[in-house]
Amino acid sequence: MVDIAVLDKLESGFKKLVESDSKSLLKKHLAKEIVDQLKTRKTSFGSALLDVIQSGLENHDSGVGIYAPDAEAYTVFAEILSHHRRLQDDRQLPLKDFGNVDFFGNLDPTGTLYDSGKRD
Rank of each mutant, 00 (worst) to 15 (best):
N59E: 13
L38R: 04
A71T: 08
D21A: 02
L113S: 07
S55P: 00
L57Y: 00
R86L: 14
G111R: 12
A5T: 05
E19V: 02
A5L: 08
V64R: 02
D51A: 07
G105S: 03
Q92L: 08
T112K: 15
V101R: 07
V18I: 09
D21V: 03
Q54Y: 02
D90I: 00
G63S: 15
V6C: 02
S44R: 12
G13M: 04
D21S: 08
D115I: 02
L10G: 06
D120N: 11
K42Q: 08
V2E: 11
K16N: 08
V76R: 03
Y74A: 01
D102M: 10
S12N: 11
A71W: 05
K96D: 12
D115H: 03
M1C: 04
R86F: 11
S55N: 10
D102R: 13
Q92H: 07
S82Q: 10
T43D: 09
F45M: 11
L50F: 15
S12D: 13
P109M: 11
D21N: 09
L25E: 15
D108N: 12
T112V: 15
S12V: 05
L38E: 14
R85Q: 15
Y67L: 02
P94T: 04
A71Q: 12
T75V: 10
V35S: 13
R86Q: 13
T40A: 06
